[in-house]
Amino acid sequence: MTSTTIDTERRRHWMGVLAKSPADRLDQLWSQLDAVPAWSHLRRPEVGLVMVRGRMGGDGAAFNMGEMTVTRCSVRVDGGPVGHAWVAGRCARHAEMAALADALLQMPRWHDEVSRRVVAPLARQLADDRAQAGRKAAATRVDFFTMVRGED
């Protein structure tokens, strides 16, 4: 993989997976990686708010629904790319790991390993959790049956 093949869609995918996964799950996979290259903060983990917007009627004009806490962080691998992270909640470590993973995923030397050992298992777990919640919900779906009543 070369730098020019990092298309936006793939980066959006891994950044989303890293943000949506629980910090301890990410931490656990991260700790199994080989020693990562030296890096420094471009922006230390910083906690703030993002205004969540909704839409009137679900699909009309936008309105401000309320805020959520977010932590952002940016790092630069020495002599390498910059990684960014924007992660719901107030966990500095989560944002930092996600930013570093974003940087490594842009490096040919690291992309496949981080992709295979961190992003893929996280994505799988998210999908499994989602499917299980969906199966539990499906069990509460009403099966209507019609009773025959009256003369005819």
């Binding site: 730098s3 020019t4 990092i6 298309d7 936006t8 980066r11 420094s40 903060h41 471009l42 922006r43 230390r44 910083e46 940016s74 630069r76 390498g80 790319p81 910059v82 842009q106 490096m107």
Partner: peptide, 15 residues
């Protein structure tokens, strides 16, 4: 996003 970012300068060391 097609080019890894390398040129950004850091901000304050102690923001």
């Amino acid at each position: 996003a097609l080019v890894p970012e390398t040129g950004l300068l850091p901000g304050f060391a102690d923001p």
